[in-house]
Design a protein around this nucleic acid. Structure first.
Lengths: 169, 169
DNA sequence: CAACGATATCAGTAATAACTGAAATAAGTG
DNA sequence: CACTTATTTCAGTTATTACTGATATCGTTG
């Protein structure tokens, strides 16, 4: 019953490999290690919804350690999902959601931290009137922008619901 | 006529120094070296619109090399402005705009690069129908979101014009 | 134009983080 | 329960980058 290791493709086509690299750089901008971005990119670009660590190791030309650490990180941050099926030794992984949308959502939430830093800076007695004005301006901007981004995101999600191509593989 | 080096404060109050550190971490998230963030933070928090490299070196406890490199970087990326006055040896620097707003603006523009990467990935013949759907969904989201952010930013700037506290020191 | 002060440059250091590869552990199978 | 295979862990390597501190260059002033 084993699924052993008879995958058809042992290696990725050049063009896909290049796209994966581009994506990895994009995801790096979101604060992810490149290898994490490569996993995202593979899952986005592949027709196979699930992938095993062994496949990732081979296709992405990476070490088992690197893949193991990365899938755990992505799992813990809820970007991918681990599925272990009885009758299968290898765990399988799949995307939980559009990674770019989800990262954008988290970045939006990150704005709260910025607001917090700005707000905290205002309270010190050493901060003069002009500085206070600047801080208030920055805070006002961030508060506004944060809300606007949240609304825009919600609007888009409502207009573009997840057609659950997600729910089976 | 020299302005020599008779600044009143040789060192920053604890609380301000802490705020500066917090800011430096925020700016780091925008891809700036911490020292750059500290310079921003100082200029935001100070009542003095202008600062010299010597002052930054002392107040931020940094090396002259680090400060020199950083102000040049910030100058080249148009975040700060260098003003050299005749009769003054030291160059003086000041903010050109709200750094947080400006960085947000640039981040928005960065979305174009993401769209580009997604778009390029679609053309390869090896990319199947499901992957194409995912890419199109991502692209659609990014295009929409990019426009919405631009609009939100413009709206805010119109409602909050720069009262030119900027134009003199 | 000599001397000094400010800034730029550059080589070296330190700190960080990703990644590898091997060894340990866990889980599934006959 | 022994064996195999998948996964985790971890120590070590490599790469990157910020920063320092010394030296070189530039610019101003007397």
């Amino acid at each position: 019953m084993a699924d052993s290791d008879h995958k058809t493709e042992r290696t990725l086509p050049q063009s896909v490999a290049e796209s994966i690299e581009s994506f990895s750089l994009v995801f790096e901008q979101f604060g992810f290690p490149r290898m994490g971005g490569r996993i995202f990119a593979y899952l986005i670009l592949s027709e196979e919804p699930y992938v095993t660590q062994a496949e990732l190791t081979e296709l992405l030309q990476a070490s088992t350690g690197s893949i193991s650490t990365m899938v755990r990180l992505l799992e813990q941050t809820s970007f991918i999902e681990r599925v272990s099926l009885p009758g299968h030794r290898r765990d399988r992984f799949r995307l939980r959601s559009d990674p770019l949308v989800e990262m954008t959502r988290r970045r939006i939430e990150g704005a709260i931290h910025v607001i917090d830093v700005v707000d905290k800076a205002k309270v010190h007695k050493e901060v003069g009137p002009q500085a206070t004005d600047r801080l208030e301006r920055a805070e006002s901007f961030y508060r506004y922008f944060h809300v606007e981004m949240e609304l825009a995101l919600v609007r888009w999600l409502e207009a573009n619901p997840l057609a659950d191509e997600q729910s089976r593989g």
